[in-house]
Amino acid sequence: MTAVVDPKVVADPLPPRRSNRAWEKFRRNPSALLGGAVVAFFLIVALLAPVLPVPGPADTDWSAVRKAPSAAHPFGTDEIGRDVLSRMIWGAQASLLAGVVSVAIAVLLGVPLGMLAGYLRGWTDAVISRFTEALLAAPFLILAIALAAFLGPSLQNAMIAIGLSAMPIFIRLARAQTLSVMTEDYVESARAVGIGHLGLIGRYILPNILPPIIVQSTLTIATAIIAEASLSFLGLGQQPPAPSWGAMLNIAKNFLEQAPWMALYPGIAIFLVVLGFNLLGDGLRDALDPRDT
């Protein structure tokens, strides 16, 4: 499920002193730090994939088909003798890339639309809001599956499908935040001294609506990683032989009795990275909550 940030929680603008306080609060939250550490670990592993001393993700060894974990293959091998650890390390790239790119698509499309609706109000707001409600009406994964099906199965299309499906959350959030910031005195003052629309949006509104957007992005990355794994599990994401945790699980389910390790490790990896982003997102939300500062 996509957790949705309560607009009231992080509605206030973020002056420098408050950002210091937020950082202090974040630093003292062990679960947030744990989440950050887990995410950092997976990011480093994904980035270092090409230089880590493991076999290539597509290297097959026909003499080691479905071998249990051993010193040579710490996480065992798959149905055609590929090293599961290596495929998981390379699979981390696909998962994290999908999480980050799809959320970037959702933010880059959703935030400007939401700001436009909140800033202009009237008909623009009505049209954008109805459009958002329509998109929100289709369950996230069903929408992503339908889009991925029509766009064609590939990691790139899965990212577009997930990004478009996650976009309405950001439209709603940015709209609510913009409406709230627009009533602040400093925006009124800026308008009174004749600052133009672009100046108002760029210098006064955008910086002040960013904290909840950052929190929501972190939580949505977690949802997007599960969505990518789900699409790849269904065969609509990363295509073989390229490694992806979801696609590995799809194959592993056919060899549960003979090679349970094929299903165990990729699932643990998805769970840990998603838990990491959820802990980080919860920590950021608590740190940026103006009600507690």
Binding site: A229, L249, L256
Partner: peptide, 22 residues
Amino acid sequence: ALSGLSVPNFWLGIMLILLVSV
């Protein structure tokens, strides 16, 4: 609860089949 939100349900299904059924 946070673990319940983070675990992919298709993986949980696979693991339960392995444990409870197999």
